[in-house]
């Protein structure tokens, strides 16, 4: 196996927020709290979790769109968090992002062609207008947009087409890494499958690495090679796709998987459910020890005292739970 493209080590992103009350000091909201993983070239890592688990913050911190509080993000061996602005800009062309809301992430006053060409203007100002236009049209063709629509504005496109524009913009510089932050969540069922296929096709054609952030465990299963489960900013479980879905070790992963409705009436009605109690605790005041213990059916006294480290539970399978063997 080749050296990983991306090595994230003990990454922390803490936000300072004002506490309740007029004279309260600031408190740290630990959105991402000590996340480590490797990403190889051409690999897709799915990142799942419920709202507020830090999955989007993690994606942005990897791209240095948010400053990391601690930890390192090594890109081909060089630490991105230590780079200055100019050096970081040079690296940025290799890493791109696709956002959730296809319309809101496109400038309404720019044409599709201008939007897709913007990264080229930024990084390859030497290209002539004709060359630029050619590359834009080529890219539009590759993402399934009619090149003839190059002069249209975002509002003239459907949601699925807007997402294709966003993908074309991310792909035009031939990046090595694309962070997809809920790229299909806003799309209709019939369009979602088309965009998933497009992402998978682009990935194999350009040997892309992807961080695929989603709350939808079914979509993540389809597109990822490995999957990371986040809860309150911490990694609960990280495993190969089939291993995670077939034999989840962490009680939170088990609860998540058992809660996903399956489009089959007999299976859906017969399946056992792992119950979790209560809603998410406040991320400002997370539980001591294991952050999941307040909702965990297996929690015991040790879980309140000791935060479980991520430990190996078989080949390529890591889990952060004191009781995963039970």
């Amino acid at each position: 196996m080749s050296a990983p493209l991306l090595q994230v080590r003990d990454l922390k992103v803490h936000f300072q927020v004002r506490g309740a009350g007029l004279f309260a000091g600031t408190q740290a909201l630990k959105a991402v709290d000590g996340v480590s993983f490797d990403l190889a070239a051409g690999e897709t890592l799915g990142i799942v979790g419920e709202s507020g688990c830090g999955k989007s913050t993690l994606g942005r911190a990897v791209l240095q769109l948010l400053p990391a509080t601690a930890g390192s993000v090594a890109w081909l061996g060089a630490d991105l968090t230590a780079l200055d602005k100019t050096a970081l800009k040079a690296q940025r062309q290799h890493m791109q992002i696709v956002f959730q809301d296809p319309l809101a992430s496109l400038d309404p006053r720019m044409t599709a062609g201008d939007i897709i060409a913007e990264p080229l203007r930024n990084y390859h100002p030497d290209l002539s207008a004709v060359e630029r236009k050619d590359r834009v049209k080529q890219m539009m063709d590759q993402v399934g947009l009619l090149p003839a629509m190059v002069n249209r504005y975002p509002h003239e496109f459907s949601g699925g087409q807007c997402q294709r524009i966003g993908i074309a913009r991310a792909m035009i510089l031939n990046p090595k890494l694309v962070v997809c932050d809920e790229p299909v969540s806003a799309l209709d069922v019939s369009i979602r499958a088309q965009v998933i296929n497009l992402l998978m096709e682009l990935q194999s054609r350009f040997n892309l690495s992807m961080l695929f952030i989603s709350h939808d465990l079914s979509v993540v299963r389809h597109i990822s090679r490995r999957v990371m489960v986040l809860y309150l900013g911490r990694v609960m479980e990280l495993a190969d796709r089939d291993s995670l879905y077939a034999a989840p070790r962490h009680p939170y992963t088990q609860a998540l998987i058992s809660a996903v409705p399956i489009a089959d009436p007999d299976k859906e009605r017969a399946k056992p459910r792992v119950a979790v109690n209560d809603d998410l605790p406040s991320p400002l005041n997370p539980p001591s020890g294991c952050v999941f213990r307040t909702r965990c059916p297996k929690a015991t006294e040790i879980c309140a005292r000791v935060s479980p480290p991520l430990q190996s539970a078989g080949a390529g399978h890591e889990v952060a739970c004191h009781h995963w063997r039970d």
Partner: peptide, 14 residues
Amino acid sequence: CTPRLDDTTVGTMP
């Protein structure tokens, strides 16, 4: 074209 959690097939989706 609905991705299913219990679906182990990979590759292009219908």
